[in-house]
Amino acid sequence: MGDPLLFFVMISSVKRAHAAAKAIKPSTSKIRRNWIILKALVHTDFKLRYQGSFLGVIWSVLEPLMMFAVMYVVFAKFLRMSDGTRTYPVVLLLGISSWQFVTDSTNVGLRSIVDRGDMLRKVHFPNYIVVVAATMGALITYGINLGVVLIFAFAYRVDFTWRVVLVPLNIIELYCVTLGLTLIMATMYAYYRDIAHIWDVLQQVIMYGMPIVYPLSYVLRRRGIVGKLGKLELLNPFAQFIQDIRHNLIAPATQQTIWNLFPNSLWYVKAVPILLMLILFFLGIFVFSKNSKRFAEVM
């Protein structure tokens, strides 16, 4: 499985390839061909998403705006969740949109192989492109949401620090763990459809086990075992990376991440989320590529 494309994905910002060959024979380079297919699939998915709607593509901006309005009213004004900082609403919205990227990615991605079954059975192309296209689509939506968050950030007069530079790295980390999980689940979905229902429940469990809608300080303040174990929430790679994004983008002083919550002596604990990310990522690639030859027959 030494296909360079996946590594390409990891360094996604550096991609834009050299000029196309002048001849009208299709590019024989495998990487280029896969890239073309990927672009076409993502482009088509995006176009189809807002098919038949009156407002069309504007929804991709309008939808997060409206969602945020609801979240803001419910959580910030109504329930008055706060960790004490002024910028908490922005942090909240950033967390929600990051998790939405994960759910979007996994929900569409795990079904993507089966949904595009007819294509897989008629044309030969590497199957992982379909899953990557689904996650890319979610990534684009995430990007748009981030733009909206930035607008809110300016409105709340957030002080941006140098740490903003680290945010792309965190997003890449989040993407990798999501892609790994999606690949595993997409493989399982092709054989047992149950995985979709299992994941539906699981993602709720994970979400409430993460400090997204509530600040971590709420948990840490509790007495007894809950307070002590609250820190363990950050062992979850999703939680940790989202916290990292919030920390680096908005509030480095107050957002807890695994880096500042645990003492340096417990360095092995700090390595756990990254380790889990690497495991999920490579396991995903491995499981998927082993089964990829049989997808056309199983469906």
Partner: peptide, 22 residues
């Protein structure tokens, strides 16, 4: 890969992309 919701032009480009044409 022909998608009935897309126009003929878009489908041609999509099909071409499936075959590897930029």
């Amino acid at each position: 890969g022909f998608n009935p919701e897309l126009t003929g032009r878009e489908n041609v480009y999509l099909n071409g992309a499936m075959l590897g044409f930029s």
